[in-house]
Amino acid sequence: MKALKLKVIASLLFGLSASAVLAEAPAVPSNINPDDHAAVANYYESLAKTVSEKLEASQHELDKYEAHPYTYGRQGQDLNSHLHANIREYKEELAEDLEQVELHKKMSATDQDRQFNKAKIKLDESAIQ
């Protein structure tokens, strides 16, 4: 019986940790070709802009609360911790989105270099003939 309980607890913990790892970055929508790194970078830039707006709104609410905490009563402490948690999550999400933007911009630049090099090789081959 104890072994069964340990297996259930272990599987639950593993499932929670695996789902947390898999839920890092949002997937690219199906209407964007994953090989088109410029489009993917633009997608992540729009996500970063949206998250940045949410971050600013939460920061503004927190500033409002901190200026007049006495007007919020007992719910003020909950609001304070909730806003701090939101701000922390938005900062992490913004950092991930910006990291994806940089990655895909670099990949797009290398793709363009490769295409340019292929064109140059074709020009060289035609000059030889």
Rank of each mutant, 00 (worst) to 15 (best):
T71F: 09
L55A: 03
K105C: 01
R88F: 01
K2L: 13
A57D: 11
G76N: 10
M107T: 09
A85K: 07
I128A: 12
K5P: 00
A95W: 07
E102M: 11
T71W: 07
K106W: 08
V28L: 08
S108G: 09
S81N: 15
Y70K: 13
I87A: 12
H68N: 11
K7R: 06
N86K: 09
I87F: 05
E53R: 08
K54S: 04
L103E: 09
V40C: 09
Q129L: 08
A38H: 04
D97Y: 13
Q100H: 01
A85C: 01
A67F: 06
S126M: 10
A119Q: 14
L13H: 03
H82D: 15
D113N: 07
H82V: 11
L62T: 02
M107Q: 13
L13Q: 02
E96P: 07
Q129V: 11
K106M: 04
K54Q: 13
I128W: 10
K118N: 05
E125D: 04
D63G: 15
E66T: 12
Q129G: 13
H60A: 14
L83Y: 03
N31W: 08
N117I: 07
L16M: 14
D36P: 02
D78C: 00
A48R: 09
Q75M: 15
Q112H: 08
V40S: 00
S46Q: 13
G73W: 01
L123P: 00
E53N: 05
D63Q: 15
K64G: 02
P26H: 03
T50R: 03
S126F: 11
